[in-house]
Amino acid sequence: MGNLHDRVKERWPHAVLELHDDRGDETVVLMRDDFTVIMKALKEDPEFDFQMLMDLTAVDGKDLGWKPRFEVVYHLYSLSKNHRLRVKVRVNERDALMPTATTLWAIADWFEREVWDMFGIRFEGHPDLRRILMYDEFVGHPLRKDYPHNKRQPLIGPKN
């Protein structure tokens, strides 16, 4: 146990951009190009054994002036080893594209649909990327910081 993120750094020194264990949550920031390979290893390698993708979400850093604007955040959990790891990947606004994790964890399907719906980040290789919470007529991605929180797009009834 412990220092998971150091072990990740040791194994893929070129791919880990940043790491910290602020408040006990071990975190690594990965390069997007190596994402699929490393995630596959994290899942299948008995050293890590992350069978569960607990959560997948994104953060829009527009208000903080993050340079790659988005961070896609994965929370991994290992049932056998009872440890957790947070994996983050940064994506640009212009090139908001992530490799899919659906081939590794089935749940990534819906989580990725939600991230696409809420943030407009596409997932390459996702079998069925469409909106999940909002309706098809909805324009924009509501959890982006530049979407006003009360800008309504009603299907029926008065506009706003």
Binding site: D22, R23, D25, T27, M54, T57, V73, H75, R84, R86
Partner: peptide
């Protein structure tokens, strides 16, 4: 900073990030 905290909800792991 950032934190993730899981608790056992009635339906399973309820986490706040």
């Amino acid at each position: 900073g950032e934190v993730y905290f899981p608790v056992e909800g009635a339906n399973g792991e309820l986490g706040f990030y």
